[in-house]
Amino acid sequence: MAIVLDHVSYIYEKDTEMAAFALKDICLTIPDGQFIGLIGHTGSGKSTLVQHLNGLLAPTGGHIYYNGKDIHADGFDKKELRSRVGLVFQYPEHQLFEVDVFTDVCFGPKNLGLSRKETELRAFEALRQVGFPEEYFYQSPFDLSGGQKRRVAIAGVLAMKPDVLVLDEPTAGLDPKGRDEILDRIAALKAETGITVVLVSHSMEDIAKYVDRIIVMNRGSVLFDDVPAEVFRHDAELEAVGLAAPQMTYIMRTLRRRGMEVGTDVTTLEEAEREILRVLGK
């Protein structure tokens, strides 16, 4: 079970003079159970890429295979695909519409043609998975805080029981605590269910803390695709494309430049702390 992108290209406004490459010859495999971070600055093609994963956009060149089948071949069930590859967009305001939270989360499973009982069971389960408090189930989704709206939006997709969960900048606009809560929830969900997660983000700090593989996009191409420590070694290239290594990496480099014998392959707070304590002999 995997998503395979085989030489995928996408051209915006094809056949006009404004035609522009959004994706250029992308080859990727997303196997089951990985926690992947997808990074790139605005306009790097990462949002276009994730919309290809569930067939919302069709590539202008190349093929996409889900479990070995070409998703744009005749007779392929796209609706089924969209329930298998769940895509949560950046702004929950773009999908919340029902009178209350619970009914809104039921929308996805209902569209799959499930029985009422099964629909409600799934909605309930999904809301539990995102840690949404039960006493707000029958509140209007529009009255919620940003963080809670985000949870409901994620639950709305989880209720379809996808194998792959793609989150497009799930923390944009949240305050630091709200951001940590959402990311911790996703990590817990990943640990609990083994679901494949693709996390689109701008923040190296977020990515470094959670994922086991990073894909860096630039101008529609894949610049790096590796484990975090390897990717962050290329900090000069990252900076050249408007990104950066996590701040911890830079802090450790400064310490090293100042004569402290610390390793610089450090991306998270915990690693940095361990490394400094090691050097200090504690």
Binding site: L56, R82, G86, N111
Partner: peptide, 16 residues
Amino acid sequence: EETDKIMKAQIARGAD
């Protein structure tokens, strides 16, 4: 543009 985004978000939830 917003209409387009909302449409996609709902299609991703199985809307037809």
